[in-house]
Every structure is written in C-alpha cells, then in structure tokens.
Design a protein around this nucleic acid. Structure first.
Lengths: 123, 123
DNA sequence: CAGGATCCGCACAGATACTG
DNA sequence: CAGTATCTGTGCGGATCCTG
C-alpha cells in the first residue's frame, strides 16, 4: 500500500492529548495525590502525611498543576490559621475510572514483570 | 484508634506495582515505543523514524527497559549488516488494552483540560 | 545497521529559611 | 497552617564519536 497522507504522527505537545495527559500523571506524584483525594477532601498537611515521602514544593506544584488542568478544586477558608481544602472535580473523578483499570492490570501483572526482570539479571 | 499494623502505605518501589509500572510508561518514550510496535515487528532505525524526535540512546535505553520488563522481545539475526527486530510480547500486548481506554479518556477530555488551563491563565 | 562510550547542559527535585 | 523563595546537587537526555 502507498504512503498514507494522514499518518498518526504526532509531535510533542502540539495536538497530542496522550502526551499532555501522561506527562502529568507520569510525574511521580500526581497520581498518588489524586488517589489520596479519592475518599474526600483533604488539607495540605494531611496530604503530606498521607503521601509520606513528598516534599512541600512537590506537593504544592503538583496541586497547582492538577488544579490548572481541572482535576481538583482548591477552596480557601479565610480564617486564621488559614485552612485550604482540596477535592476532586468531576473531571478528576472520571479520570480515575480508566486509571483504575490500568492499576488493576499493574497489580495483576506485577509478578510477571518482576520475574521477567530477574530472568534478565541472571542472563 | 491505635496505630494499625498494616496501613495501606506503600513506600516507593517496594511492594507497589503501580509505581513500578507507571514509572516506566511515564518516562516519555516507553508508551510511544509500544504503540509504534503495535502493528508488527520493527527494526531499530525504523522505530527511530516512526517516533521521530527520539535519540538513539533514549530509544536504546527504552527498548532495553521494555525488554527487561517482558513487554517486548528482541531478535537478532546474525547477518552482516546486523538486523535486529523488536516485537510486542503477550504481556506487552495485554498492557495496551487498559492503556487504550486511558488514551481514549485522554482524547475525549483533552478539550476540557485545555480550556481549564486557559481559564487559569486569564485569572 | 545497531548500538556503546563519553562529555555536557539544564531542568527537576530536595533542603532550608522565610512569609501571611 | 499553608505555602513561597533561594540555593544547590543530581540525573536525564541530547550531541558527538567510536565499534562490530
């Protein structure tokens, strides 16, 4: 067959939604943050404790990115001491649905991956 | 309540399959490489051309990682000039199934994300 | 053709200190 | 409490050269 005119080539960032989305959830913390927010709204330090090994800057950045993309909502209660709550939006919640199936795959096939890695170490 | 002995906390890499898998597909090139291999086996330079903006080292690294994890198979044909073919394994192919649903979500919700980003720029 | 080895810049991520 | 600002190191990733 001859060359197609509309090959599925997609340069980075331009019109490629996959890159745009995966670069976000692939950034180590975004997914963990979203999952931490799954069971209701949380405060900043609450998220820090829950995620455990994340620094303030990373959590801050991650939250801002996720908010920018419309995955979470940030609510400031004008009190002293200040109180800020984060919660999933509809978009964020709907994202977790396909994500869950992927996580399920990961859990199910993790042993296979582990053994594949070890097989390679011994070769 | 007292401290639980088995809280769902998962330290990085230890027993967490999600991290192990997502760190791989989130590394910018792995997913693109897998997709490039979806329609049959390819050679090294063929993959380079198809992915477009990847360097030799990155493609090489990515391919080795994917092979280590059992996602792809590498076949060397002892000829001169050398010829090496890469193809998806069953594991790799099965991975693309849940991944596809996630990609579908990304394509469908990309406009919403874009507009959410722009709404934030103007605020 | 299919990579490995090396050098190097830069963006990312941690630690610390400071602010409202 | 909920962050921001700065400073710094490290590792990713590109470019180039070399090998079988």
């Amino acid at each position: 067959m001859p060359k197609e005119t509309d090959e599925p080539k997609q340069q980075p960032g331009a019109g490629c939604p996959i890159r745009g989305v995966l670069d976000r959830i692939g950034d180590q913390w975004s997914l963990l943050t979203l999952e931490a927010l799954e069971d209701g709204e949380k405060r900043f330090n609450e998220l820090m404790r829950e995620i455990g090994d994340i620094s303030k800057q990373m959590l801050s950045k991650t939250l801002r990115h996720l908010e920018q993309d419309g995955f979470i909502r940030r609510t400031v209660y004008p009190q002293v001491p200040p109180r800020v709550e984060y919660e999933l939006t509809e978009l964020g919640r709907s994202f977790l649905i396909p994500m869950k199936t992927l996580i399920g795959w990961a859990e199910q096939n993790h042993p296979a991956i582990i053994s594949a890695r070890q097989r390679h170490e011994n070769s």
